[in-house]
C-alpha cells in the first residue's frame, strides 16, 4: 500500500494516530482558492530572514514545519513574519520524528513510516487549505522578478491543473558581503503543484516524488528568479546519507555539482560558470544578488 492508493488519507506504520494524515480535500469545506508555500525546515535560522518576506508577500499563505531544529528556527520564522507585517499569513507546525536522510537511508524506509521523507511531505502538505501549493526549501530566496512572477501565478493558476518548474542557482556565502553565484548548471525543479488526489507524495529511489496524472501540464519559469543559499562554513550535505548516495546516477547531477563547487570554493578555486560577487558597502550579499545583481543581469541569462 502507498500514498497514491489511499483515497481517505494515511495511517502510519508506527501507530502514531495523532500523526495520521487526512487529505485536505476530504476535510469539511474542502479547499479554498489560492496558493500556499510549504517549507520543511531544520536549522534554517540564518536563511529565513531572507527567504520568508518575499514568499509571504507572493503567496496566500506559508506553512513552516520544523523538524528538530536546535538553532531557534521557529522563533526566527515568527519574528521575520512579524517584522514584515505578515504574521497572519504564517502557520508553524512541528514534526517530531527523525526523518531518513536522502539516499540509502530513505531507500530503506517504507513510505508509510513516520520516518520516511514521503510520509513527512504528505503530512506537511496535508496542512494546506488552498487549491495550489508551492514546495519550498528553507534556503531558497526569490529575486524581485521571482517574487512578482510567483505572486502573479499564485492567483492566475486558479483551478488549472498545471505543474510549475522553478529554476534556482546556488549562492555560496562566505561572509555578509561576499559570495559566489553558480550559473554553471541549468536546473529547474517542479515546485508548484495543484493540491488534490492526483498530486500526493510517494517514494522514489533517493528521495520522495510527487505523483501526477498522465499528460499533466507543466510550465517552466525563466532562469534567474531564485537562489539557494549555501554556507561555506556550514555542513551543506548533512541531509544526505553520505556522498556515495549521489555519486553515480544522472538524477543526482545537481547534488554532485554542488559538492564539486562547494569543495572547490573551500580550496580557493573558482569553478567555470561561478561568479564571484561582492556587495556594496552596507548591503548584504543576499539582498544585493536578489534585488540588484540578478534582476539587472543581461537577458537571456547565461546559465549552464
Amino acid at each position: 500500500m502507498n500514498a497514491i492508493r489511499n483515497p481517505q488519507g494515511l495511517t502510519n506504520l508506527e501507530g502514531h494516530t495523532d500523526f495520521d494524515i487526512t487529505w485536505p480535500w476530504n476535510r469539511p469545506g474542502g479547499l479554498r482558492a489560492g496558493a500556499t508555500a510549504v517549507l520543511r525546515v531544520k536549522d534554517e535560522a540564518p536563511s529565513l530572514p531572507f527567504v520568508l518576506p518575499p514568499l509571504l508577500r507572493a503567496t496566500d499563505h506559508v506553512i513552516v514545519v520544523d523538524n528538530g531544529s536546535t538553532d531557534g528556527t521557529p522563533e526566527v520564522a515568527a519574528e521575520t513574519a512579524a517584522k514584515a507585517g505578515l504574521a497572519d499569513k504564517l502557520t508553524q507546525a512541528s514534526y517530531p520524528f527523525e526523518v531518513a536522510r536522502a539516499g540509502a537511508e530513505h531507500l530503506g524506509q517504507h513510505e508509510l513510516s513516520v520516518h520516511s521523507l514521503s510520509y513527512f511531505y504528505n503530512w506537511c502538505f496535508s496542512l494546506v487549505q488552498t487549491r495550489y501549493s508551492w514546495k519550498w526549501d528553507g534556503d531558497m530566496v526569490l529575486t524581485t522578478e521571482g517574487e512578482v512572477s510567483l505572486s502573479d501565478l499564485t492567483w492566475q493558476i486558479g483551478g488549472v491543473q498545471s505543474i510549475i518548474r522553478v529554476p534556482r542557482h546556488g549562492l555560496y556565502l562566505d561572509s555578509d558581503s561576499h559570495g559566489y553565484l553558480d550559473l554553471g548548471l541549468r536546473n529547474a525543479e517542479e515546485w508548484g503543484y495543484p493540491v488534490g488526489p492526483d498530486f500526493v507524495f510517494t517514494k522514489a529511489f533517493e528521495w520522495e516524488i510527487r505523483s501526477t496524472p498522465e499528460q499533466c501540464r507543466s510550465i517552466g519559469l525563466p532562469q534567474g528568479l531564485c537562489v539557494e543559499l549555501k554556507y561555506l562554513d556550514g555542513d551543506e550535505f548533512a541531509h544526505w546519507t553520505d556522498p556515495e548516495s549521489f555519486a553515480t546516477s544522472w538524477r543526482n547531477r545537481r547534488k554532485r555539482r554542488e559538492w564539486a563547487v562547494f569543495h572547490a570554493l573551500k580550496e580557493g578555486q573558482l569553478p567555470p560558470g561561478v561568479h564571484e560577487i561582492t556587495a556594496p558597502d552596507g548591503v548584504h550579499i543576499v539582498d544585493h544578488v536578489t534585488k540588484t545583481w540578478l534582476p539587472r543581469a543581461p537577458r537571456p541569462l547565461e546559465v549552464g
Binding site: W155, Q156, S162, P222, R299, P300
Partner: peptide, 18 residues
C-alpha cells in the same frame, strides 16, 4: 477564469520578457 493562467503562462516566457 482559466484564461488568466493561459496569458500568465505566455508571460513567463523568457523571449517575451526580453
Amino acid at each position: 477564469p482559466d484564461a488568466w493562467f493561459e496569458t500568465g503562462r505566455v508571460s513567463t516566457r523568457e523571449p517575451e520578457r526580453i
